[in-house]
Every structure is written in structure tokens, then in C-alpha cells.
Amino acid sequence: MKTADNLLTIAVTGLNAIDSPGPGIAVIRGLREGLDRPVRIIGLSYETLEPGIYMRELVDKTYQVPYPAAGSAALLNRLHYIHEKENLQLVIPNFDAELNNFIRISPELKAMRISSFLPTAEQLGARDKINLYRFGKEHRFLVPRDRIIYSPAELKECAETLGYPLVVKGKFYDAVLAYTMEQAEKAFYKIMAKWGLPVIVQEFIQGTEVNIAVLGDGKGNTVSAIPMRKLYITDKGKAWAGITLEDASLIRLAHDFISATQWRGGCELEIMRTKNEELYIMEINPRFPAWIYLSAAAGQNQPAALARMALGEEQPVFEHYEAGKIFIRYSWDMITDINAFHQVSGKGEW
């Protein structure tokens, strides 16, 4: 019989299991299944209707945390409060936008005896969309050519150098394919209004998209790499179903990436494989993808492995996984009570 002595309390963000989901729920499933001790999950949420808050079979208690824009001091302040109540041992942030704050406060978290397993601020910055081309050149990875622009007047030069169609991207999110100057200008204004400047204009690479969930130990070793191809895509471009692949060239690319960057933690490489079998890195997401539970299903439980490494435990490099494992997302009308919603919205915890 296990006792509460070995209870592991882990705080996790990204509970928005919606049509464009955060990875939190998938991470929690991995943690619950992959760690050989009782786990208490503390959800950290931004919105009152993040479904994970109400999924009591997965999340024991949830606390609202301040939006990333409130800064790292506000986050630390809130975590102090949560830690006093819950005695957290580990925190796993799962959103791009919150990573900077968590990295900034990681020394304080360490002093509070809360572990984390995050990339450095330099690693985070180097793979940023704005720096991706430079990053690719430096490490000899194939990446699409791009231009970082601040005015629609620069689109003409982009079209001349990169050719149509152009991929017009926001600095955080969103991408629009533009086949004409008119479409490019429209996309520029739309993206600028939503995400601000600069806007990234990228060369279009034709091919098959493959994603790789990768876990690095921070010393250049790849603990796990699981390639996945989307089988069903939502109108937001998110995978609604996907399948694990077996491909040595994809695994090699993941290893090369980890060894070049010494990446610490989970990440997702978005790859485009061209007809000529070239592998372009289209984007590097600095956290686990929303489909990360597939890594556990395929035999390499990345969230649990990250937790072990964060706690300073032995984590061997995974060697095998199963190709042909499929995930299929589904939607489900969960029922909760007004009282629960009231606790979350009124008291900021439930």
C-alpha cells in the first residue's frame, strides 16, 4: 500500500482542452500513467472555462494564475500562495507565452524547492520564429527563407526574393498563404492587427507535414523523439487525429537539433518533407505539443520522463516506440455545477 509520503504534487498549465487545445490535459494523462507513485495534480488556469479545471478525475485542484502580460513578479507571488497550500514539488508550464516568466523565476522556484525542467532564455529566443532562419543557417538545418518586415511596402521585395505563394505569419501565431500582392497586403494588415509587428514573411515549402515531439536532457542527449503525421486537420490547422511514424531521417534530425541546441525539456519540431525527401524545419515549439499523450501510448512517456529528470532521478534514453499508433480527438459535453464555476470565477480556485 502506497502512503502519502511519496505523494508527488505537480502543477500543470494548459488546461484549455478546446478545439485548439493546450497540452496540459495530455501532459497530465502521461504523468498519471507514467510515474510509479501517487500524483496530485494542481491545475494552473487563466480562464474560468478551461475544461481541465472541471475534469476532477485528472486535475485535483485548480488555481487561477495571472496572465503572462502581468509579468513574472505577479506569477511568483501567486505561486507562493499556491505553494503554501499545496507544497508543490514540480511545475510544468505548457504555453509558449508563459515560458519567459517561468524561466525568469526558476531560481526562486528552486529556492522554494519547486523543480522545473525548462530551456534557457537563450534557447527559447534562438528558436523564436523571428530568429528561425538565422538559427537554421547557424546549425545547418534546412529552414524556409524569410523576411521580417514592419511595413506592407516591404512585401514587394519579399515577393521578388521569395516568390509566390508567400506565407505571412504572426510573431506568435497564425499563418496566411498569399498568392497575390493584394492577398499579401490583406494578410499583413490582418496579422499586424492581431499580433502586432513585426510580421514574418516566409517562403512556401511544398510537402508533407510531419511533427516530432522531442525531449532533451539539457546536455545534448535526446531522451525521446516521436514523429507523428496528422491524419485529420481542423480548420485551425490542428491535428484532430494523427499517427506515429517510423523514419530514421526524422529521428536523426531530432537528435541533431537536441545536440546543436542542448535543449532542456520538451519541444515540438514542425517539419515539411519535400518530394525530394528534404526535411525543412518550419517551426520549433518550445514545449510539449497537445498530442503528447501519443508519445506515452507509443511507448515513450515524455511527460513522465520530464518529471523524473526535473526531480533529479535517473531517466534512461528511450530506444523503441511503436509506429502506427493513432490518436483521435473527440469532443464531449462535460457537465458541471454553477457552484464549481462560481468558486473558480469568484475565488480563483476550486
Partner: peptide
């Protein structure tokens, strides 16, 4: 491959 004629390419899915 399976006897029923199902073919799966694990490199591409």
C-alpha cells in the same frame, strides 16, 4: 501488410 490486403507504410503514415 495483412492477409486481408491492408497495407501500412510506417514512414509516411
Amino acid at each position: 501488410t495483412s492477409e486481408s490486403g491492408f497495407i501500412f507504410n510506417p514512414s509516411t503514415g
